[in-house]
Design a protein around this nucleic acid. Structure first.
Length: 111
DNA sequence: TTGTTGACGCTCA
DNA sequence: CTGAGCGCCAACA
């Protein structure tokens, strides 16, 4: 796989349980502020990845589960998030601002 | 090679 | 708040 994808998986796996992040934040943390789409593509491949990537913790800037439709029918994205204590209604994180996890700040320690 | 599409995001009306 | 437009990067027909 590409180094970018590998880095994406690494960051996503750093997301604590019960928290969520966004494509843009992750892309920006990787040095590609405009590469949000690439993050989604990388996560798409993440289903085949061995360690398994908690892609359900990655949502768009609105806190909506845009990628829920790409999840296996047996493993609903919203259901997994609820299992982690994240409230999800109509494919949208309720306390998105509360559970939001920014890799740029949490990892790099930037403000 | 060109045109479209897509798990995105920001700006402006 | 909502919708439309544009920019961005990569994959696919």
């Amino acid at each position: 796989m590409d180094d970018f994808s590998s880095d994406v998986y690494k960051v996503v796996r750093e997301i604590p349980s019960g928290r969520v992040s966004t494509y843009g934040a992750i892309a920006k943390a990787l040095g590609l502020p405009k590469g949000a789409r690439r993050v989604g593509w990388a996560l798409n491949q993440s289903f085949e990845v061995v360690p398994g990537v908690p892609a359900q913790r990655v949502v768009n800037r609105h806190g909506q589960l845009s990628g829920a439709i790409h999840f296996p029918p047996d493993l609903p994205m919203a259901d997994q998030l609820r299992a982690e204590g994240i409230k999800v209604v109509d494919l949208q994180v309720v306390d998105f601002a509360e559970v939001f996890w920014d890799p740029v700040v949490e990892l790099c320690g930037e403000s």
